[in-house]
């Protein structure tokens, strides 16, 4: 057990080092979602969006939960990229020829992606605060937002890693990634509440786990505990199923790839 902790910490440390050596990449990773979506999109639609429709004091406060989950989505889906490169250049093979538990590589990646995601969520909530949006449920609510976000992130990262281990080339990986992420956002309650969507989009969004996650986080920011808790409970059930499926698929892809 001690040995596995040593392995996971060493491997996680490598991801941190890599990120810190890519200063620009780090900067843009951190500011992209909140800059683009929260500040631009939020302010742009501040007047265009009907507060009766979004059921929030203003569009920015409605959007905050969506941007939090979009960040989780982007980080999660990109979570396997570094493993993909490791697989392609042979670094993964170097790691696999050492006496480590096979799971350590995967665990280090989860740990790293979740840590980055948590930091980004905090930054987004901080920026939202600067624009006058603060979480109704306070510190405890923010902690719960982080937990829900990370539970969603685990499943997404597992999908991404499964893809990294299965694809023949990284071109395939990035096409699938690009294809997945925007529809996931538009077919969810991130930008518009389900009730305001055209019927066919609504039915698709209903089956998007992202919708349920956003619907749990939004009242934690907008209204308060009594409104939020039922949604949180539903989201936890959805996430249990979602994560279970993703982890199972991920484990199979990993086994097939590295034995």
């Amino acid at each position: 057990m001690n040995e596995q902790i040593q392995e996971v910490l060493a491997l996680t440390n490598r991801w941190v080092k890599r990120l810190s050596r890519e200063k620009f990449s780090m900067l843009f990773t951190l500011i992209q979602p909140m800059l683009f979506w929260l500040i631009f999109f939020g302010n742009l639609f501040q007047r265009a969006a009907d507060v009766q429709v979004v059921q929030a004091p203003n569009y920015m406060s409605f959007l905050a939960a969506g941007v939090v989950v979009m960040t989780v989505l982007n980080n999660g889906l990109a979570g396997g990229v570094d493993l993909l490169f490791d697989k392609e250049n042979g670094f993964l093979e170097r790691l696999m020829a050492t006496p480590i538990r096979r799971s350590s590589v995967i665990l280090s990646r989860f740990l790293f992606v979740m840590a980055i995601t948590a930091m980004q969520i905090l930054v987004i909530l901080g920026v939202a605060f600067l624009f006058g949006v603060s979480a109704e449920t306070g510190i405890l609510g923010i902690a719960l937002i982080l937990v829900i976000g990370m539970l969603f992130g685990v499943g997404l990262t597992a999908i991404s890693m499964a893809m990294a281990f299965s694809v023949k080339s990284h071109g395939d990986f990035f096409s699938v990634l690009g294809f997945l992420s925007l529809p996931m956002i538009f077919l969810s309650s991130a930008l518009v509440p389900l009730a305001a969507m055209p019927g066919w989009m609504k039915s698709l969004a209903f089956f998007n786990p992202m919708t349920w996650v956003i619907d749990a986080i939004r009242p934690l920011i907008l209204t308060g505990w009594s409104e939020a808790l039922p949604h949180v409970a539903i989201a936890l059930v959805v996430l249990a199923v979602f994560d279970g499926l993703c982890l199972y698929g991920g484990a199979r892809a990993f086994k097939r790839s590295v034995g």
Binding site: E3, Q6, E7, L9, A10, L11, N13, R14, K17, R18, R21, E22, N89, G90, F91, E93, R94, L95, A97, T98, P99, I100
Partner: peptide
Amino acid sequence: LIGYVPQERAIDRFLTGREHLLLLADLYH
């Protein structure tokens, strides 16, 4: 029991030489 020297592409260009060895030292416990 074994050591492995892969082809040269399997180097992490963002790590220093010493960091490569420190990482592996942890993986060999």
